[in-house]
């Protein structure tokens, strides 16, 4: 029961981007196209699940006072190991996702979930939390990216969706466009929540 609950909460109710507002830097940087958003989302989900497992395993041997530096060391080394192994053994996948792996080190979602969830819960729930949060992150990123890619480039997942005569609104691809899109989506989420 609680496994399912931990799994689904990250998708809408505690969506890491729209509700908890975590991981803003990668959100703004990689939501320029749906392709990038999916890549970043998948890479982050993978790392998040693994780091949640790790943190949950070591939670009992980590002294409380130094838990943050320990998490940083664990996550950073883990991400680097994933990065190196992918580059060496699955170079094709690394080519498309590799760009996002180093970015994940600075993704606050990973540390945020380690601190807020994995160090208080067992391994199984931590896995559920990681998957749910990762999916929520991917979903939110894709929504932002869909709006930005269609308006800013006239395409969706590199497929032309708007007519050739459409003059792309370039601002949506730039940083201000990311902030404005995100702001409006958050407002929309809050509006829907109030209605409920």
């Amino acid at each position: 029961m609680s496994f399912i609950k931990e799994l689904t909460k990250g998708i809408i109710k505690e969506n890491p981007i729209f509700v908890i507002v975590l991981g803003m830097c990668p959100t703004l940087a990689t939501s320029t196209s749906v392709e990038n958003a999916l890549g970043m989302g998948m890479a982050a989900t993978f790392v998040l699940v693994c780091s949640n497992i790790f943190i949950s395993l070591i939670k009992n041997i980590t002294p409380d006072k130094i838990r943050i530096p320990v998490y940083v060391v664990v996550i950073a080394s883990f991400v680097t190991i994933v990065d190196l192994s992918m580059a060496a053994f699955i170079p094709d996948l690394h080519k498309s996702l590799g760009l996002f792996i180093p970015l994940i080190v600075v993704n606050c979602i990973i540390l945020g979930r380690a601190e807020a969830f994995a160090n208080k819960n067992n391994v199984l729930n931590s896995i559920a939390d990681g998957i749910g949060m990762g999916l929520g992150f991917t979903l939110a990123l894709s929504v932002v990216a869909t709006i930005r890619e269609i308006l800013g480039n006239g395409t969706w997942l590199n497929i032309k969706v708007l007519p050739e005569t459409y003059d792309p609104m370039l601002i949506t691809l730039l940083a201000p466009g990311a902030f404005i899109t995100l702001g409006f989506l958050m407002a929309l989420m809050n509006m829907l929540k109030e209605k409920k």
Partner: peptide
């Protein structure tokens, strides 16, 4: 500023 960033050439 929005117009200038969105359609710089126009």
């Amino acid at each position: 500023a929005f117009l200038l960033a969105s359609w710089p050439s126009l």
